[in-house]
């Protein structure tokens, strides 16, 4: 095991029972994530990416194998790992401000400090002036911003992100990717990011893990040797980007093609 690993996944398997049958969703997955790293997991639909995240955060237990957080086996929710889900899951009965404060509230941060920190992060993600809006009064892009802000607000060391920009339009997506990279550089948190978009994976990450189609296992882990800071708007057109992207795409598209041939549930 890597000494610096903040999260170590060791031979993890996970089965689900479906219609009386045991179905293997995640098959013997191992990898380490280093402290401060931006690590992305990319793979075709239904390869068990979200299952992996749920196990890392402690909401699910592996059927076999183990996951270590700072050297200790994860045996349930630790409360130290942030989780930005695909759906925004904002509490509709709380205002934007109160949603951002929720994590700190649960963790017992004093009211003054809580309000101060919430205010700062809300401004930082560009939502100043919308503090008292409820969820149904926010657009999809704003909700995604709040979803990220409320996790950053309680300052977890490790943040898991499950396709947080999935349903957004391209422009909003690029803006939020820029924001995310800026925030990550400021906070120096470890980010484990899930996407099915290889472009997004290469643009953001230090390392990209490609998963196979169902049942998901590790196909390869690739170092992304691109300079930082990166400009998410222009980086995909550079030659160095293509040098990283093309071989990875070769690997990923095989998985996607085979997936599409076996069953026609969309990618």
């Amino acid at each position: 095991m890597n000494e610096q690993a903040v999260i170590a996944v060791e031979h993890v398997e996970r089965e689900f029972s479906s219609r009386g049958q045991q179905v293997l969703a995640v098959d013997d997955v191992s990898f380490d994530v280093e402290s401060g790293e931006f690590f992305t997991i990319v793979g075709p639909s239904g390869c068990g990416k979200s299952t992996l995240l749920n196990m890392m955060v402690g909401l699910l237990q592996p059927t076999s194998g183990r996951i270590l957080y700072k050297g200790d086996a994860v045996r349930g929710v630790t409360g130290e790992i942030g989780y930005v889900t695909q759906e925004d899951n904002l509490f509709p009965w709380r205002t934007l401000r109160k949603n951002v404060e929720f994590g700190m509230e649960v963790r017992g941060v004093a009211t003054d400090e809580r309000e101060e920190r919430a205010e700062a992060i809300i401004k930082r993600v560009g939502l100043d002036g919308f503090q008292d809006r409820f969820r149904h009064e926010l657009s999809g892009g704003m909700r995604a911003r709040v979803n990220i802000a409320r996790t950053l607000a309680w300052r977890p060391d490790v943040i898991l992100m499950d396709e947080p920009f999935g349903p957004l339009d391209v422009q909003t997506r690029l803006q939020l990717q820029t924001l995310l990279l800026d925030l990550w550089r400021e906070d120096r948190a470890t980010v484990i990011f899930i996407t099915h978009d290889l472009n997004e994976a290469v643009t953001l990450s230090d390392r990209v893990l490609v998963m196979t189609r169902h049942p998901g296992t590790v196909k390869m882990v690739y170092d992304v040797d691109l300079e930082r800071p990166r400009d998410v708007f222009s980086i995909p057109t550079t030659d160095t980007f293509r040098e990283v992207f093309d071989p990875l795409w070769d690997e990923l598209q095989t998985e996607m093609r085979e997936d599409a041939e076996e069953d026609s549930i969309g990618l």
Binding site: L59, V77, G79, Y83, T85, N89, F91, W93, V106
Partner: peptide, 29 residues
């Protein structure tokens, strides 16, 4: 109640009472 909303609190290691008071009750209100 939507389990995803409960998970938002669970991930923070919130106690059962906190979840009831801050998530379940307002969601059912």
């Amino acid at each position: 109640i939507d389990d995803d909303l409960v998970n938002v609190a669970r991930v923070l290691d919130a106690g059962r009472l906190t979840i009831l008071r801050k998530v379940v009750l307002p969601a059912a209100s």
